[in-house]
Design a protein around this nucleic acid. Structure first.
Lengths: 343, 343
DNA sequence: CCCGTTACCGTTATCGCTAACATAGCGCTT
DNA sequence: AAGCGCTATGTTAGCGATAACGGTAACGGG
């Protein structure tokens, strides 16, 4: 892999390839991008030269000249939540052969971090932005509006979006779960969730859940919140705590499957009769649940599908075409599992 | 948020800000990058103008002009493995206030995908590359060597690196586990793992494990492999299968904690005396294990620490300074938990 | 033999920003 | 008053690619 140019440490440019193959830079550029007419002979010559030199195109220069960037910014709160990697996988799959590529930014559920990440992303002039949630700082919202590229807000449809929106209604999801629980005859219901004030979706589920209970003349009897740590362990601890405080609860609704799984394990170990004496339910439908001793009731949050649809919208917009934003609401499916009694 | 320029849809540039604030583009650039001396008065003026216009700098142009890119490419096999998000979190934490920013690429354990992702990343001329594993295609290796930026290969030290290497020896990890198991008096040992031929680290653990047993005059009595699906569930199924085939096994070594956890749950449900009659161990030390009925024996793979150290190396290299690569080997810690008997 | 077509390839002018150098104004020294 | 050293700002010349257009060779029909 010898280097012809004078300074062996200078990074390679189109010119190096052009000199090595005896054609103009423009022709090399055409070959490398498969664009325009190039004779088979020179095409082979150029590719050969590029390969032996080990040339890697400089997309920075390319993007500046063409005003085109094949990146899609994806902004999510966390990677350790398991839900978001699944959304990502849906996005990647859909983007696979569109020439577009996702770039991920993580906010840790902090609005200021989200704003910073968004700013950073937009400074690379991506072809589109996919961002979790509908709640943003004022500045972030302004940036999204003025970005001049398609924006898709995902996960949640309960609120006003900037452009397109793909998600589920967490409020209705909570309400549906409440209805199912009431229908199954449970009456003294506890709620266990995260303490994070910025987890708007969990909050909306809780609100919808409360409303659903209210319609049946019920209310949440007790709540327990946590933050940080191993979710499975927290689920155990919280379950123990809430049941110690309130032994006559007959249902526990967890804001996610992980703490729900922890609660389930704890209940089984401590001899609770699930689902007769005590019902349990989580949220998300993570496939981890399949390996549990009993299948926890949950609701599938359509994570992969949300990713797919969002990517589809970005990929479908013909280069900045500002068509009106669409709102796609998916229907989460209730899975009763083995922890809600059936009759 | 009014727009002064003629065409209201034209993206903003430095010139717009410069005209709005009455100074040269260069001065605006200086203000926005906090570089060079600018009087407080003009600084305020410029920031004000930039803010009201909603200007977002164009890093593409900036990078081209300055030959500097604040991105670090991070290439990992998967996001659903839980291990890699943790590595990522270590990287992000360390990069937090260096001005550098990680950009993630996922290979799905496919060498050809890895090569493609690497090519794509290098075409953006990042300041460094962090890549999982030591095994790459020939072309990928050549790209890494000629990239002209620091490269850190992570997770594994059993092999030859391109530049710097941060990880643990999976071979020795397997061997240590074997020694601990033998020392605890187990003799008929089964191994359960992934089928993936490209999971070199799991393979190396298995090899080291076999060597460790061999030194005590033992061998792996039976093996069971899987691919895809819910790891927890697979752990159950494999455990059932291997024990049905080979009821006198007295120890099961799992290649990761998830299938180990599934196995543990299955064993407990089916009345196995763990750890007396049957010992179990996994690998990784994921904190999910804390919520299990019993603490699975495992070895911490130092995931966060690996991320930190790798990022530290990238951040510490003064802009392309090609100092010789360092090799940092971390020591995984054996945690006996409750599933290896102690005497 | 001329001219229009087609197929291929080169030239020129940016893209938006920053490195490096140039310059202007100021206070102070000697 | 000239000269010096600052500080604050402007000017110039690219960075490495691509868009848009221009040019040329080869060919064929009239």
């Amino acid at each position: 892999m010898a280097r012809f140019p004078a300074d062996p440490r200078r990074p390679l440019t189109l010119r190096d390839v052009s000199e090595a193959s005896g054609v103009s830079e423009m022709t090399v550029s055409r070959v490398l991008r498969n664009r325009g007419d190039v004779s088979e002979a020179t095409r082979v010559k150029v590719l050969e030269a590029a390969r032996t030199l080990g040339y890697v195109p400089n997309k920075i220069a390319g993007a500046l000249a063409s005003q085109r960037v094949n990146l899609v910014g994806v902004i999510i709160p966390s990677l350790s939540n398991l839900v978001f990697p699944e959304v990502l996988s849906g996005i990647s799959a859909e983007l696979e052969d569109t020439g577009l590529q996702p770039v991920v930014g993580v906010t840790n559920y902090r609005p200021d971090k989200e704003e910073a990440v968004l700013y950073e992303m937009l400074s690379w002039r991506p072809s589109g932005v996919i961002i979790a949630g509908l709640e943003h700082t004022e500045a972030a919202r302004a940036m999204l509006e003025n970005a001049g590229v398609p924006v898709v807000e995902i996960m949640d449809v309960d609120g006003e979006g900037v452009d397109s929106v793909v998600g589920i209604s967490h409020r209705r999801a909570g309400r549906h779960m409440a209805e199912a629980i009431v229908a199954a005859g449970y009456r003294k219901i506890g709620f266990l969730g995260t303490k994070m004030p910025e987890d708007h979706r969990a909050r909306k589920r809780f609100e919808g859940f409360s409303e659903g209970l209210a319609e049946a003349g019920l209310a949440v009897s007790d709540t327990e919140f946590y933050s940080g740590g191993s979710a499975l362990l927290k689920g155990r601890e919280m379950t123990q705590a809430i049941l110690a405080r309130n032994p006559d609860l007959d249902f526990l609704y967890y804001s996610n499957d992980m703490i729900g799984a922890g609660g389930l394990l704890w209940c089984l170990e401590n001899g609770y009769d699930v689902p007769e004496r005590l019902g349990l339910a989580g949220f998300n439908g993570v496939d981890l649940l399949e390996g549990l001793p009993r299948r926890l009731a949950t609701m599938d949050a359509c994570r992969r599908e949300i990713g797919r649809k969002a990517a589809e919208i970005i990929a479908g917009r013909p280069h900045g075409g500002m068509i009106g934003g669409e709102v796609i609401e998916l229907e989460p499916v209730l899975q009763l599992g083995d922890t809600i009694r059936r009759r």
